[in-house]
Design a protein around this nucleic acid. Structure first.
Lengths: 231, 231
DNA sequence: CATCTCAGTGCACACATGTCAACCGTTCGT
DNA sequence: ACGAACGGTTGACATGTGTGCACTGAGATG
């Protein structure tokens, strides 16, 4: 099945090139249609029409619409992951990290609107395997964040589970922001971003407290003292 | 002298009854199909077949599939809102409130799986008006939560915007939990619930700090002092 | 009683859909 | 240079779709 590669070939294979090109066209077409309808309601024929090829040619590239969807998931996270990796320099403070990350994510969401919309749509959408693929990627994202968090004092000493807990909370807050951003007009968007920032700030504020020595007891006590008595 | 009531509602008109019955059957049928496919990929014919009536009879109840969808949104939040109102007694501590709310929401999610799945699916799903309806309901939910939060010390003195900010964060954490719960096996579910509880606890811990007198300055200072100087 | 209302039916139509088979024309490997 | 490989096309098929139309029969009303 695999074509033999003569070593060091610099063939401008217009065959492969062309194929990759129309494959990209298919992905782009699907993405475009997905801004109006959800994935399992768009048809193979629609996609091929939008891409400018005949319906049956679709099968030269994907066995299935489902496979197209999975490719779309990969593509979506590919571009995002790249951006996030750039933003992963070493901030001195957790607040810096937050502000920078928010900026990056918002920028990414603006630049790749269609991809983000696709992810938001299909995260809890119709097709099981696509949902699973998205979940996997998002968990990976949160996991990376958890690793990054480990550099901060306090957090460094937490259990892995607690770091994951924090990372998931932060990640989810950001993801939720981008999802809401998709349907927001500029004014709403601004407000939303501001609110998300404050939410993340609020979260980061509790980090030093959570990390206190005898955690559970102290937390319970603190909460009781601070909130229970009308002082 | 008619023994029947000429005006009004005393007659258990089997006409109305019957109609309401098959309307309910349509909703139930749609909900069932929605556990496998997303809303804008299920067809009117499928729904009517599942409900046991002929396709054209559908129009006796709804103009449109879209209207059926909107009715489903209402139905979904109806049952949920009822449960939450019961759980809205007056807890002494914010932690109590959290634990109780989590319990209630988890229970509701278990009991009304199909409704929750529908909401999760269509929140960012295909049809614009349905998305809008869901968003409205969720904002209402967060708004109620914001009001409830006002009874707690510290929070009481916050600005409205800040209360909303907090409420949205809490609400979103819970909503996210229920959404993830849908695809989780029992073991994962337990872990997820535990993690969400800790996330909410962590959020509540920062409440007293956030409320401190000169907020922004103090917050920045605190964060800088607690987290910044390490190297 | 006669009559009207109306949820529900069957049939029909004009589409759209996924996929199979046969068929081209260009590019590849040799 | 030549045949194979392959991306792409056309045509056809069985099936599914939304919805208009005429109809039915049971319940409501006078």
């Amino acid at each position: 099945m695999a074509s033999r590669r003569p070593s060091g070939s610099a063939t401008r294979s217009s065959r492969e090139e062309g194929k990759a090109l129309t494959r990209a066209a298919l992905l782009r077409a699907a993405l475009k249609l997905l801004s109006r309808n959800s994935f399992d309601s768009i048809s193979l024929r629609e996609v091929t029409k939008e891409a400018g090829i005949s319906p049956t040619a679709f099968y030269r590239h994907f066995d299935d619409m489902e496979e197209l969807g999975l490719a779309l998931v990969e593509e979506s996270f590919g571009s995002l992951r790249e951006m996030l990796r750039e933003a992963r320099s070493d901030p001195a403070m957790i607040t810096d990290a937050i502000n920078r990350s928010v900026g990056t994510v918002v920028l990414a969401a603006e630049r790749n609107q269609l991809h983000f919309r696709f992810i938001a749509r299909e995260r809890y959408g119709g097709i099981r395997r696509i949902r699973a693929a998205i979940r996997r990627e998002l968990q990976l994202f949160a996991e990376e964040l958890a690793v990054d968090l480990a550099v901060f004092p306090f957090v460094r000493d937490w259990t892995v589970a607690d770091r994951r807990m924090l990372a998931s909370l932060i990640a989810e807050t950001m993801i939720h922001m981008t999802a809401e951003l998709l349907d927001a007009d500029p004014a709403e968007a601004e407000e939303l971003i501001g609110r998300s920032r404050r939410q993340l700030l609020l979260i980061s504020l509790s980090v030093p407290i959570w990390g206190a020595a005898d955690r559970t007891a102290l937390i319970e006590e603190t909460v009781r003292r601070e909130l229970g008595d009308d002082d």
